[in-house]
Computed example of a mutant assay.
Amino acid sequence: MKITVTIDQPTGDFQDRLLALLAEYAANVETDATWSVPRAENYYTRLPPRAQRIVREAVARGGYVSADDLRDTPDASLRGHSGALTRALSSGAAAGEWPEGMPLPVLAQGPGFGKVVGYRMPDDLLDVFRTAVTNIDGQQPTTEK
């Protein structure tokens, strides 16, 4: 049996009672943690412009954008760009737009702590985010420079 429930803007009491009921049957509840176009649109609009550019460029470039392609000048820092991607994901979960544990749609690529060499979006998310970016920006994502 599969039951899909969508509740827009539940009241606090109703949400608390529903979550308590779901917790009681948690072993039998499967959370939908997949990116859909409405979720991707919501995520994209939560991002500040610099982080939106990362998503837009990753989509336009087939899933990967290098750090050099994002810099306006050769030595410009990308410090703080990744944090906005994570904050948007957390704020959407806190607002009930998607469940906790949704995967980040764009991941920083690099040798570890320190300098980021680029950002990658998984291939299976490209069409979803291409549609979302097009819906929000009004045109197909293209590379900037």
Results as ranks from 00 to 15, higher is better:
V133L: 05
M121P: 03
L47D: 07
I7M: 12
E30A: 12
Y43G: 00
N135T: 02
D32E: 15
S82P: 00
A132F: 15
D68G: 11
V59P: 02
A67H: 04
A67E: 12
S66Y: 02
V106G: 01
G110F: 15
V117W: 15
Q139D: 11
L89I: 15
K2A: 13
G12L: 15
T6G: 13
V59F: 12
P48T: 05
L21A: 10
D16W: 03
R120V: 06
S77Q: 07
L104G: 13
M102R: 09
A23L: 02
I136G: 00
T11W: 08
A132N: 02
P38E: 10
R61N: 11
D16Q: 07
D75E: 15
M102F: 14
G92M: 12
K2G: 07
A58W: 03
R71S: 08
E30T: 14
L104I: 10
A33D: 12
P122T: 03
V37C: 09
D137W: 04
L21S: 08
F113M: 07
A95W: 08
L89H: 13
L104Y: 07
Q52T: 05
T31W: 01
Q15P: 04
A76D: 15
Q52R: 13
G101Y: 06
V128N: 06
L21Y: 14
G12S: 15
W35F: 11
G114L: 13
V128Y: 03
L126T: 02
L70N: 00
R46A: 11
A88W: 08
R79G: 13
A33P: 00
R17T: 04
D127M: 09
Q139N: 06
G118L: 06
L107V: 15
I54N: 09
L126V: 09
S82C: 03
V55A: 02
T142V: 14
I3N: 14
T45A: 06
R71I: 04
L85K: 05
G63Q: 09
G101E: 01
E57I: 01
D123P: 02
G101A: 03
E24H: 15
G62S: 05
P122N: 09
A95M: 10
P49K: 12
P49E: 14
N42C: 10
G110C: 08
G101W: 00
T73D: 10
N42W: 09
L126F: 15
R130L: 01
A76C: 08
